[in-house]
Design a binder for these strands. Structure first.
Lengths: 180, 180
DNA sequence: CGACTATTTCGGTAATAACCGAAATAAAAG
DNA sequence: CTTTTATTTCGGTTATTACCGAAATAGTCG
């Protein structure tokens, strides 16, 4: 970790911490940060020494990053070791991550809510409130799905433009009425 | 935990697990789920017995939930104990949480990136790529801020409508051109 | 002001997740 | 096939965080 340029080191450490706050383990996040700022693919051994981590730890973290789809393996000619590089378009990366988390967490949650709703129906009327609340939450997640669908469908520049338009966009669409 | 209706129990457990995956501790998430499905405010003692948690643990978790702004304290007449209830509008809740996470995590990250950019400027030219990447990431977070600003500014129904329009909206705005 | 009840603080313990290092496996080269 | 190098698996250890329970504090009532 001492061999790293100061700026990279700072960012890697911070990114690692942020990871832990979002349910991503430190090692994974640090490796990702390192690759993101690297000007060339790195092999596992290099990552180990640069970050001061055990080889095995790096191995599983990289595999996980690959399974998320934000790190790819490449091969340099004349070197049989795997080299790794991060996706560089942060917007695209965000989409990929959102999509993956949707698959891993949102989808199962919706299924569970449906489950709860189904079994609640057969029970006593005392569950009325519970059902209402669950349905409300379900509608939220449904919207989240719609939304993540949009995110995936459109290119980065389009989304940037849309976001920047903001209120103006909604006015054009005739969606805004009162206080807003 | 056995005293809970089956449906509630299932949801509470799932919500607790989801919490851990997003960097929120299980207790906090479980309490939140319980309150969300409750038809009346609950006091700390009730929460303890319903979820099988220690009084102190519940105390800190509730405080944390309050600091996030998604749980409020109320008082029932003739009872001096604090009673707690959850926000019920999930969309609003999402906004509140996003806003809080922005404050706690996104803002500091942007500050750190600015820091890195500032110190990188003074260094050698070899940091060119690092600077570019950091700037790119910064622009992403800047957009995220813009976006979260929009989320806050508009009412739930407006956002729902906008999200549902989706592609149509972008077409009206004249944003879509190529592949999309 | 005591007596009682509610809440919080805090030191220690337990549960969980991260991490290491050695050994096994796989892959490539000679 | 043997040797060398790369990667993965896995049992055990360490670090982190969650959690408990006792004691302290704060608040309320008579």
């Amino acid at each position: 970790m001492d061999a790293l340029p100061e700026t990279t080191r700072k960012f890697v450490l911070h990114w690692g911490e942020m990871g832990t706050r979002w349910g991503i383990n430190r090692t994974m996040a640090q490796i990702h940060a390192l690759l993101y700022l690297s000007d060339r693919p790195l092999n596992a051994e290099e990552i180990c020494t640069m970050l001061g981590l055990a080889r095995s730890n790096v191995s599983v973290a990289i595999r996980e990053l690959q399974s998320w789809g934000i790190v790819k393996v490449t091969h340099l000619s004349g070197d049989r070791r795997d080299h790794f590089e991060s996706m560089t378009d942060v917007f695209e990366m965000f989409r990929v991550i959102m999509n993956e988390r949707r698959r891993r967490e949102i989808d199962p949650t919706i299924r569970l809510i449906d489950d709860c709703l189904a079994s609640a129906t057969e029970k006593d009327a005392g569950a009325k409130m519970v059902k209402d609340r669950l349905e409300h939450m379900r509608s939220f997640f449904a919207l989240a799905l719609t939304f993540s669908g949009q995110m995936e469908r459109f290119s980065t520049p389009t989304l940037v433009k849309a976001a920047k338009m903001g209120d103006k966009a909604l006015k054009v669409l005739g969606l805004t009425g009162g206080k807003e």
